[in-house]
Amino acid sequence: MSDTSLTIENILAPELTLCRAPASSKKRVLEFIAEQVNQQDASLSDTQIFNNLISRERLGSTGIGQGIAIPHCRLEGLERVVGVLLTLEEGVGFDAIDNQPVDLVFALIVPKEATSEHLELLSQLAEKFNDRGFCNQLRQCTDAQSLYSRMLNSNS
């Protein structure tokens, strides 16, 4: 698969787009992401995903500011990139660079080998989330379907 074909459309499934998810802490958000991925694909260990996400956070928070976090990790044995988009019921502390609570989360779980694709996706996401109007639109969604289509149809 060439780097150019890896887009948000290709990695985000409607089943992994969740609106107003309940989460009381950063740890709980990461657990929730791992559980959701495991529900969609039982061959992927939620414990391992959670541990890998936590390890990555220990290197530095993935809270990029303005209420947004892009937690990500690599996973042994993964064949494709998995994206998870969440809006949270209420903001949680994420040790973000601006210390703002996070309520918009896009998680990326990538194969152990995927490096350039991984970075390319992170920059695509960061660019999208840099658009404050777009982020506000995502936050206003009240159901997963509208959240999913809004994420995909943002041609910013």
Rank of each mutant, 00 (worst) to 15 (best):
V110W: 00
S156F: 14
T115C: 01
L121T: 10
S61Y: 06
I109G: 02
C141R: 01
E90P: 00
L108M: 11
D131L: 09
A144P: 06
Q124E: 12
S156A: 11
N155P: 00
Q137S: 10
V37M: 04
L12E: 05
A144V: 04
L12T: 09
R74N: 10
V102T: 10
V37N: 00
T142P: 00
A21M: 11
Q66I: 08
N155G: 03
I8G: 05
L138Y: 12
A42D: 15
E117W: 00
F106W: 01
P71V: 02
S24P: 00
F50M: 02
D46S: 15
L16M: 13
P14T: 07
D98I: 10
A13D: 11
E31Q: 14
S146Y: 00
I109C: 04
L104Q: 00
A107T: 04
E57V: 04
E76P: 05
F134H: 02
Q39S: 15
L30K: 08
I33R: 00
D41Q: 13
I11G: 05
T115Q: 08
P71E: 00
Q66F: 14
D131S: 10
S154T: 02
L6A: 11
K26S: 07
F134L: 04
Y148A: 04
L104W: 00
K112R: 11
A144H: 07
N99T: 07
R150A: 08
L152P: 01
L88E: 09
L59K: 10
D103S: 14
F32K: 12
T62H: 06
L88D: 10
A107P: 02
K27T: 11
L119N: 07
P111S: 01
G67Q: 08
V81P: 03
E79H: 14
L59Y: 09
E127G: 12
G91A: 13
G60E: 11
Q39D: 15
L59T: 12
E127Q: 14
K26V: 06
R139C: 06
S2D: 13
T87I: 07
N99R: 08
H72Y: 03
S5F: 13
R74E: 13
R56C: 13
N99V: 03
Q140D: 10
N136A: 09
L138Q: 09
L125R: 03
P14C: 04
S61R: 07
V37R: 02
N52C: 14
S5Q: 12
S154H: 15
S55V: 04
L88R: 09
D3N: 12
Q40T: 15
S45Y: 02
E89G: 05
Q66H: 15
R28G: 05
C19M: 02
R139M: 10
K112I: 06
R56F: 13
K112C: 02
F94G: 03
Q145V: 02
R58N: 08
L78Q: 13
A34I: 08
S24W: 00
L88V: 12
H118R: 07
L30P: 04
V82D: 11
H72K: 07
A69T: 05
A107I: 05
P14A: 11
E9Q: 12
Q66Y: 13
V105T: 06
S5G: 12
